[in-house]
């Protein structure tokens, strides 16, 4: 398994990360090492086995679709890096 620098840059873009040059080099090596190891899943005797998405028996857990009001607005907004009155503030999206 060979991982290229270009692939690492593409993955970083998908993951919303900016990587510095030395990080790109490092992660290229790391990903290659780890993926080479992880490749042994392709030798596992799993032919015909279904995929497990967890360990619970597969069932849906339903609840009523009810609106519950979280009273403490202030506690939520106190963690906002930037806010305006009771709103989260972000840079202009529509140019």
């Amino acid at each position: 398994m060979k991982v290229s620098k270009e692939e690492v840059m593409h993955i970083a873009k998908l993951a919303n990360l900016n990587l510095r040059d030395e990080e790109i080099d490092k992660f290229t090596t790391n990903l290659e090492d780890i993926l080479n190891f992880a490749d042994i899943v392709n030798n596992a005797p799993v032919e015909g086995l279904t995929e497990s998405f967890g360990v619970n028996e597969n069932y849906n857990v339903f609840r009523k679709d009810e609106i519950k009001v979280f009273e403490d607005n202030e506690a939520l907004l106190q963690n906002a890096p930037e806010k305006d009155r009771n709103m989260f503030k972000i840079p202009k999206v529509i140019q």
């Binding site: 993926l35 899943v41 596992a44």
Partner: peptide, 13 residues
């Protein structure tokens, strides 16, 4: 990778 890993999960269980 991901699909195989989920199958391995079944195997391990």
């Amino acid at each position: 990778y991901y699909k195989k890993a989920q199958q391995v999960r079944t195997l391990v269980r």
